[in-house]
Design a protein around this nucleic acid. Sequence first.
DNA 1: ATGGCCAATTTTATTGGA
Length: 254
Amino acid sequence: MRIVTWNVNSIRARQERLLALLARHRPDVVCLQELKTAAAGFPAAALAEAGYHAAVHGQKTYNGVAILAREAPAEVATGFGDGGDESQARLVTATVGGLAIASAYVPNGKEVGSEKWAYKLAWLDRLAAWVRRRPPAPPLVLGGDFNIAPDARDVASPEVWAGSVLCAPPARAAWEALLAAGLTDAFRLHHDEGGHYSWWDYRQLGFPRNDGLRIDHVLLAAPLAARCTGAFIDRDERKGKLPSDHAPVVIDLA
DNA sequence: ATGGCCAATTTTATTGGA
């Protein structure tokens, strides 16, 4: 079973690239982030034509997440359902093929110390609490843009980003809390070295210089980590005209 | 070549992204 997560930075701007990605990798499940459109603007018909059902949690202009699947997603839910703020479309969950799938768009946080930074950390606390309280079955696949570079290997220019919202200790502690909740970074099961990134700034020749960060991840519950046969970042997707600033992460489960 | 921000909108500036 092949699962992809990708921050598309507007589903409408990326529709043709998404269809090409589906044809190239033939994934069973895709977690999408930053749709930047309400559900009415989601290209459901074109994706159905390509063979994919969609569970969409859209929002005008900002955020927006979705799960695509060859099999119809069941038990679709949005948000944490914890009584907290649900005004930002950042989490959609569903059951597909005996797996619990979640597509998450973690807040960026703008600047350490800002109001958005506090929102990011609170949102990550809610995410970890949600992971801890959900039942062990079906096992969880949590894919998304985490806006966290877990360690120095995940940053091309660590000194530049050290104090940023992607690398600051509280963000990395929130990542560790997700691991402590029983999840495993699928990519790190198969690659120990640094130099693999999933995001490059559009500005300042970020991609040609490979000045990137690894901030998009697939986290797996233990039974699925044991089944993960491969993981890679589809760096080629960042090339060419009108790319997203993020590259997709692809994982395979036996 | 992988190339000097991009996308959406309350659009000809502003906001948010990371």
